[in-house]
Simulated scan of single mutants.
Amino acid sequence: MTKRPWATNPGAGSWIAPGVRESALEFHRSMPGYAATPLIEVPTLAELLGAGSVWVKDESNRFGLPAFKVLGASWAVNRLLGPTSTFAELAALVAGRQLTLVTATDGNHGRALAYLARALGLRSRVYVPAGLPEEPVQAIRDEGASVIDTGLPYDDAVRAAAASVRDGDVLIQDTAWPGYEEVPRWIVAGYSTLFAEIDVQHPAAIGLVVVPTGVGSLLQSAIEHYRAPGRRTSVLAVEPVTAACVTNSLTAGRPVTVDTSAPTIMAGLNCGTVSFTAWPTIQSGLDAAVAVTDDETRAAQALLHTYDIPAGPCGAAALAALQVTGPRPGAVVLINTEGDAQPAATLGASIAQ
């Protein structure tokens, strides 16, 4: 059996995130259809896994989209094209402008940006990597985007999107590289709304937050939130065994690019390189990272479905990580980053085969 990618960082608990973080919460509250996504306690999971309590932050329906990604995309677009205080002000500001929002995606970020472009009366162009299932691709098209199938791995699709930008194009990418850092930082800041909601929903101390991780932007947001002065919540990252760039980077002490050509059901986490701007925060403040298999994630997904939590594979990875890392005292929050398009009955049947 191949050794499971697993890394710990004993010094992370004493690290404090520097600076004052901007808040996107009031802007998000001004968006049509805003509601805090639910934080669901699952006592049976706590008993099963030896935790004090287990809670699931369910992002399966955020503004009618099956993922949290619109939080970052909307805040970045607002900061880049505004900034404004409300969504209505942003819409008025861009009205009549011939702009195209451009990105590369392995699913949810691209759909979120296309949704946002449509809501603002703008165009969108989305580059997708090889192997992305037709269903998320069609969902992006249904939001009005022009979809470019690159036939390339995710990292190369990102490069293709960036190289395509011309006058009138606005690149909103959720990973950073030298020279492209401001927008990804705003995306990270936009994700802070998710954790601000948890603060209200669960004001007591939280022992552990488990974050499904691709390039590391949501992870960076979680670490900065829970490493603010006075906080000591541990953060665990989870990735596919076939795309464990954060875990391998944490082990190596430097960013490591991994080959992501092997398929995984966790398509949204199938990223080979840590975001340039996320890495310093991850290296200093992440307590641990672990990789899980597709089979472990399928089983965790089916279990969450029995509790009426419609997790997709990426979101279910958080539960899979908790299952493979063992009992945890105190409260544990699992971030279910996405909903699932596959009916629970069909999922159960596929596992039984």
Score class of each variant (00 low, 15 high):
Thr2Val: 06
Thr2Asp: 15
Thr2Glu: 14
Lys3Ala: 11
Asn9Ile: 10
Gly11Phe: 02
Ala17Asn: 13
Pro18Asp: 10
Ser23Lys: 03
Ser30Gly: 02
Ser30Val: 00
Ser30Glu: 04
Ser30Lys: 02
Ser30Tyr: 03
Met31Cys: 02
Pro32Arg: 03
Pro32Ala: 06
Gly33Pro: 04
Leu39Met: 05
Leu39Lys: 08
Ile40Lys: 15
Glu41Tyr: 11
Thr44Phe: 08
Thr44Pro: 06
Ala46Lys: 12
Ala46Glu: 11
Glu47Tyr: 04
Leu48Tyr: 13
Gly50Thr: 12
Gly52His: 10
Val54Gln: 14
Val56Ala: 12
Asp58Ala: 13
Asp58Lys: 14
Asn61Lys: 15
Asn61Ile: 04
Phe63Ser: 00
Lys69Met: 02
Ala73His: 09
Ala73Asn: 11
Ser74Arg: 13
Asn78Cys: 09
Asn78Tyr: 03
Ser85Cys: 08
Thr86Arg: 11
Phe87Pro: 09
Glu89Arg: 15
Gly96Cys: 00
Gly96Ser: 03
Val102Gln: 01
Ala104Leu: 04
Asn108Ile: 10
Leu113Met: 07
Ala117Met: 12
Leu122Ser: 01
Ala130Tyr: 01
Ala130Met: 01
Ile140Asp: 05
Arg141Thr: 03
Ala145Glu: 13
Ser146Met: 09
Thr150Phe: 04
Gly151Pro: 04
Pro153Ala: 11
Ala160Leu: 05
Arg166Thr: 13
Val170Pro: 01
Val170Leu: 01
Ala176Ser: 07
Ala176Thr: 05
Gly179Cys: 05
Gly179Ile: 07
Gly179Val: 09
Glu182Trp: 02
Arg185Ala: 00
Ile187Cys: 09
Ala189Leu: 00
Thr193Met: 01
Phe195Glu: 00
Asp199Ala: 06
Asp199His: 01
Ile206Tyr: 07
Ile206Met: 08
Thr213Leu: 02
Gly214Tyr: 03
Leu218Ser: 11
Ser221Ala: 15
Glu224Tyr: 09
Tyr226Asn: 11
Ala228Gly: 12
Gly230Leu: 08
Arg232Ser: 11
Ser234Thr: 08
Leu236Asn: 09
Val238Asp: 05
Pro240Gln: 05
Val246Tyr: 07
Val246Asn: 10
Thr247Leu: 12
Thr251Glu: 15
Ala252Leu: 11
Arg254Lys: 15
Thr257Arg: 15
Asp259Ala: 13
Pro263Gln: 00
Gly268Asp: 13
Thr273Tyr: 10
Thr273Gly: 13
Val274Gln: 13
Val274His: 12
Phe276Lys: 10
Thr277Pro: 10
Gln283Phe: 10
Leu286Arg: 07
Ala291Pro: 00
Asp295Pro: 04
Ala302Arg: 06
Tyr307Gln: 11
Gly312Val: 11
Ala320Ile: 08
Ala320Pro: 07
Leu322Trp: 04
Gln323Ile: 07
Gln323Thr: 14
Gly326Glu: 07
Pro327Tyr: 04
Pro329Lys: 14
Pro329Gly: 13
Ile335Arg: 14
Gly339Phe: 08
Gly339Tyr: 07
Ala345Phe: 03
Ala345Cys: 03
Ala349Trp: 06
Ala349Arg: 14
Ser350Asp: 14
Ile351Asn: 12
Ala352Lys: 14
